[in-house]
């Protein structure tokens, strides 16, 4: 049986892992490669690096980080943050990343998804969607780290991304992110039910029960979290034991 994946997310800036609330108030968390290896040893199923500065002049730092990670980490890892063209994707995949996550550039030019998937295969193209609940029904897609609203509906955009060749959707709830009050279950379930490709839920994990909820009720295929792992409150092994005890199949 396909197991549910637990994915620590490493937000990186200036070669360090940082964590913010609502995409702001950054705190230093450690060295990315050291943390990646530790998570892999503790049983993480996959890793995500998000370059939250996404500044072109910082790309060399990110590529170097990817190369160093690939030399000592033998689980899949995804790299995202400001990726705008297939050349950047090539550089990151060649450096050793298994997948790339694209977001703003995909919203601005949806054909980018198709181009990337055609060259490198859908299996390495993750489309990241940041969504925020509207006052009426539904969720709106935001870009630029949650600062810019778009006219896209989150569910419609997820379906469109799938149709264009995305291999997975990394779905972040802007409302839940950083709150540690649990994932946005209705959002996650609505998107997971609308598409065939896997959904990685993100934003709001504060306790292993939140991961259990999003992987069952929320119908997510994978749960991404940062603080609960970085701050040591719930190590990966304890989180997985909790999930196993609550009937969620994990490695």
């Amino acid at each position: 049986m396909l197991l549910k994946r637990i994915i620590p997310c490493l937000d990186v800036a200036g070669g360090r892992v940082v964590k913010g609330i609502h995409f702001r108030q950054l705190r230093d968390q450690g060295d990315p490669v050291v943390m990646a290896r530790a998570y892999s040893d503790q049983g993480a199923d996959e890793l995500v690096f998000l370059d939250i500065e996404a500044a072109p002049q910082q790309r060399a730092t990110l590529v170097d980080l990817v190369e160093r990670t690939a030399r000592s980490v033998f689980i899949p890892f995804t790299v995202g943050g400001g990726i705008r063209d297939v050349d950047e994707i090539r550089t990151l995949l060649r450096a050793g990343a298994d997948k790339v996550s694209i977001q703003t550039a995909a919203v601005q030019r949806p054909a980018f998804i198709t181009e990337a998937a055609r060259v490198y295969g859908s299996q390495c193209i993750v489309v990241a969607i940041d969504a925020k609940r509207e006052t009426d029904a539904g969720w709106r897609v935001y870009t630029h780290g949650g600062r810019q609203v778009t006219d896209l509906d989150a569910i419609g955009w997820a379906k469109d991304a799938e149709r264009r060749g995305a291999g997975e959707i990394l779905l972040t709830s802007i409302d839940a992110d950083g709150t540690q009050n649990g994932y946005d279950l209705p959002l996650t379930r609505a998107v997971a039910n609308a598409i065939q490709i896997p959904v990685i839920a993100s934003g709001g994990a504060g306790h292993p029960k939140d991961l259990a909820a999003v992987l069952t009720e929320g119908r997510a295929d994978a749960a991404l979290a940062a603080s609960i792992f970085h701050e040591g409150a719930f190590p990966i092994a304890d989180t997985k034991r909790y999930l196993r005890e609550h009937g969620v199949p994990v490695r």
Partner: peptide
């Protein structure tokens, strides 16, 4: 009837 692609850990 399951999701495709088959992505992730399986025994």
């Amino acid at each position: 009837a399951e999701k495709l692609p088959h992505v992730g850990w399986n025994t």
